[in-house]
């Protein structure tokens, strides 16, 4: 299935596509999306699907999507960069799907919005330094 992804990525230059394969998915179909040019774009088109538009998260069945608004774990930028790249629990990894620039953008966006007022900014090179190698299973 990875070949499908690579093909899509090659075809739709500029489009936002996941290079990650979702090995046993029942769909194997991944549509393209608009380019994500800013941290706000990334937040709106990716993060808010779980963390919600107000970044307050949500409560599920004895489990939750954590709030990013007023989340003390954002104090060190390394932590959200790590989580976005590697995933956390049920949250998928975004390494390979978001560029270093997009990861930096969205971490900076989250750390300066939703009641967060951190002033140190993450650079794409900081993200690159943390890159994990995560490969989806091929089917």
């Amino acid at each position: 299935m990875r070949s499908v992804f690579l093909l899509l990525a090659g075809l739709a230059a500029g489009a936002f596509l996941a290079p990650q394969a979702r090995a046993d998915s029942a769909s194997a179909v991944v549509g393209k999306m608009q380019p994500l040019k800013t941290g706000a774009d990334v937040y709106k088109h990716v993060c808010q699907s779980c963390h919600m538009p107000d970044a307050k998260g949500a409560e599920g069945a004895g489990a939750r999507f954590p709030a990013l608004a007023g989340n003390a774990k954002l104090a060190s930028a390394d932590y959200p960069v790590y989580v976005v790249l590697n995933g956390f629990g049920g949250m998928p990894w975004f390494s390979g799907m978001l560029s270093d620039q997009q990861v930096a953008d969205v971490v900076n966006y989250i750390r300066t919005h939703f009641g967060n007022h951190y002033t140190d900014m993450v650079k794409p090179s900081d993200v690159a330094a943390q890159h994990p190698t995560i490969k989806s299973e091929e089917d």
Partner: peptide, 13 residues
């Protein structure tokens, strides 16, 4: 529509 991946994140949001 049946979305996985980026489009699914987008639509779910």
């Amino acid at each position: 529509g049946y979305m996985f991946g980026p489009a699914a994140y987008d639509f779910a949001g």
